[in-house]
């Protein structure tokens, strides 16, 4: 800042000088201030917990348990259904017809991923001409391994691809059900 005090009249110049001087606090005022500061209690620490640490840890544990329980309950929905459900997206069940030509058979059923491989769950109906057997099953879109049971013996569907899931020595057939 450029000062031009020499251009001012003497009286005004003196007044300006006085205003520029730092005021010296009185001894009494300083003593009073020091007493006041000393009277204020110093805080024990700079930052305080809004909740106690034990409570915070307990709350975090409870939240984690509730979250884990909810996730398990959601997953349980897909495990309960006997029919495989899609991992992504949703689609309606399709009616899938399975047919086997077995004129000499007296009883045919179908087993697969869709009925927990229960041979009594889905029997096939004999056709009017007695040559073939068929059943229609509502299936969600997906891939299913299956096999026929002809008079108590497992038989692969000759019209369908092999599943190669022959862990147990008897290969399955496979059907892919597409979404609508």
């Amino acid at each position: 800042m450029v000062e031009h005090d020499e251009e001012l009249p003497p009286a005004l110049r003196e007044a300006t000088r006085l205003l520029r001087e730092e005021p010296v606090p009185s001894r009494d005022w300083r003593d009073a201030l020091e007493r006041e500061v000393a009277a204020v209690a110093r805080p024990e620490r700079g930052r305080r917990w809004s909740v106690r640490p034990f409570t915070a840890v307990a709350a975090a544990l409870v939240c984690a348990l509730i979250g884990a329980s909810s996730a398990v309950l959601v997953m349980r929905g897909s495990a309960r259904s006997p029919v495989p459900t899609r991992l992504a997206g949703a689609a309606q069940a399709q009616l899938v017809r399975f047919t086997l030509v077995a004129p000499g058979a007296s009883r045919v059923s179908i087993v697969g991923d869709f009925n927990k491989w229960d041979p009594s769950a889905l029997p096939l109906r004999r056709s009017a001409d007695g040559q073939s057997w068929e059943v229609e099953i509502p299936l969600q879109p997906g891939r299913y391994a299956y096999s026929f049971v002809v008079d108590g013996t497992l038989a692969r569907d000759p019209s369908a691809p092999q599943a190669a899931d022959d862990d147990f020595g008897q290969p399955n057939s496979v059907v892919l059900v597409k979404g609508s």
Partner: peptide, 11 residues
């Protein structure tokens, strides 16, 4: 990927 595709790939 859907369960169908997953099991097809696993197979």
């Amino acid at each position: 990927a859907s369960l169908g595709m997953l099991t097809a790939a696993a197979s």
